[in-house]
């Protein structure tokens, strides 16, 4: 039933036919498991880099881009660590969040315009009391990105930034850059940049079929 009810990404990603990197970890990078085995395998440290900025560049809403970060966020809240959504473009929908395992008591939303959003995100990252800060700042400039990267380092928090895929070509100080795109009715995840990753050309991951 669930296979129909919810395209179970774990099943898709863990399918033997899909490329999977061997499980050896890069010890230099501390990371938070993404919850997706095959994605973890492709990332240094085996997950979202901690104390660093990750960028998720997506082509359209509704490709599964949030699904990518949900397992990690859910795990954080279950450990009673706070997750902050800064300037989300829609209502984060409680029933789906709860179904994904998020403990809503540790999820906060900051509603702010673009300047205030960047400031808020920075404050949260720096405070040291947030596990992850997830922002939607489509127009952020390089300088601000840099500040976020620094703030994440200061507060040892996981920063995740969602931006339109059109920014993929721009330079970015982020430690990790992923691109989510759609082709042939399926969603693919492309690792554009990963600090500490040896290979430069990473294969695509096919996530939603």
């Amino acid at each position: 039933m669930n296979a129909i009810a919810s395209p179970n990404l774990a099943q898709v990603l863990d399918h033997p036919g899909i490329w999977r990197r061997s499980a050896d970890r890069q010890p230099r990078v501390r990371a938070l498991s993404t919850g997706w085995t095959s994605l973890d395998a492709k990332l240094p440290g085996g997950g979202w880099p901690q104390g660093a900025l990750s960028e998720i560049l997506f082509e359209h809403d509704g490709l599964g881009e949030l699904d990518l970060v949900m397992p990690a966020l859910a795990a954080l809240t279950q450990e009673h660590r706070r997750v902050i959504f800064v300037a989300p473009p829609y209502l984060p929908y409680a029933p789906a969040l709860a179904a994904a395992g998020v403990d809503l008591r540790f999820l906060h939303e900051i509603h702010a315009g673009s300047t205030e959003a960047a400031w808020s995100m920075e404050q949260c990252l720096r405070s040291g009391c947030c596990g992850a800060v997830v922002g939607w700042l489509p127009d952020i400039d390089y300088r601000s990105l840099r500040r976020l990267q620094l703030a994440a380092e200061t507060g040892d928090a996981c920063a995740m930034l969602f931006r339109p895929a059109t920014h993929a070509a721009q330079n970015s100080p982020a430690a990790l850059r992923l691109k989510v795109s759609n082709s042939d009715e399926a969603t693919y995840v492309d690792v554009l940049k990963s600090r500490g990753l040896l290979t430069t050309t990473a294969p695509l991951l096919r996530m939603r079929a």
């Binding site: 409680a94 029933p95 906060h108 509603h111 702010a112 205030e116 404050q123 949260c124 009391c129």
Partner: peptide
Amino acid sequence: TLDERLRARLGDAALRQIAL
């Protein structure tokens, strides 16, 4: 403290939680 600081600048309405 963080919460208060954010509220002081953004206003109370800007910070919220979501419930089922």
